[in-house]
Simulated assay, not measured.
Amino acid sequence: MTGIDRSPTRTGSALAVLAALVALAAVGAFSWIALAVGGVGVGLVLAGVALARHDAVSTGAAALFVGVLAAGVQGAPVTALLVGAVATVLAWDSAGTAIDLGAQLGRSATTVRIELVHAGGTALVGGLAAAIGWSTYQLGLGSQSLTVPVFLLVAALCLAGALAARGR
């Protein structure tokens, strides 16, 4: 009798790495710092899902988010920052889900549908938060500071993180 492989699921791992690469591509084109820090973040997310380590995934997502902030400081477009931030949250959430499902059900369990629905829900919440942030920026700020959209985005990311943590 063989044991159950408790590695992270393939679908969630692939979604996490893909989302991390999207975040890197969104902001890395506008800042060398974002490219460097985000590259480290992608590597840590990849290592986290390969080794089933939540701490590596969280550190990688934090590095990706620092890359988003660095790109913002260096003048990246708001849409690139919003895409990068949402993709960062999606990478973190998908990786955590892959690790948890692998540990609970095993890698060979059929979890594709639930992982896609979960990732779609995360992307929807993130997309709505990004749309609200972008709308606020377009309608209310004009040439003023980005403080309001940044705080709105941080609040939306905190909300998404709290909802994701509650679901585990």
Results as ranks from 00 to 15, higher is better:
L82Q: 01
L116S: 15
G60E: 04
S58R: 15
A91E: 05
V57E: 01
P77H: 01
T59M: 02
V117R: 08
A103K: 04
A119Q: 08
A85P: 10
A76Q: 06
L139N: 07
A76P: 08
L64C: 06
H54P: 10
V66K: 01
L101M: 07
W92G: 02
R53A: 06
V89L: 11
F65T: 06
A76V: 10
A63S: 10
S135Q: 10
L139D: 10
A85F: 02
A61N: 02
L116M: 11
S94G: 03
L139E: 12
V78T: 12
L51Q: 11
L128R: 12
V66A: 08
A80V: 07
R113I: 15
V86F: 14
Y137W: 08
Y137R: 09
S58I: 12
A61V: 08
D100V: 15
T88I: 11
I99W: 00
A87H: 06
A109V: 02
A109R: 02
L139Y: 05
A52F: 00
Y137S: 08
I132D: 01
L51C: 11
T110G: 06
V117S: 12
V78S: 08
A98Y: 00
R107E: 14
G133S: 11
D55Q: 05
A91R: 02
V78H: 13
A119H: 06
A130H: 02
A61C: 05
A62N: 01
H54G: 05
G67E: 01
V78R: 14
T79Y: 12
A50M: 08
T111G: 06
A80T: 06
S108V: 06
S58C: 14
A123P: 09
L116K: 15
A98W: 00
A103S: 06
H118N: 15
V86Y: 15
L64M: 06
H54W: 07
I132P: 01
A130S: 09
A91P: 04
L124G: 14
R113K: 15
A123N: 11
I132W: 00
G120S: 14
V125E: 11
V89A: 12
P77V: 03
I99D: 03
V125L: 14
A123Y: 01
T111Q: 09
G102I: 04
W92H: 00
A109I: 02
G121Y: 14
L116E: 12
G84Y: 01
P77A: 01
W134R: 01
A63M: 09
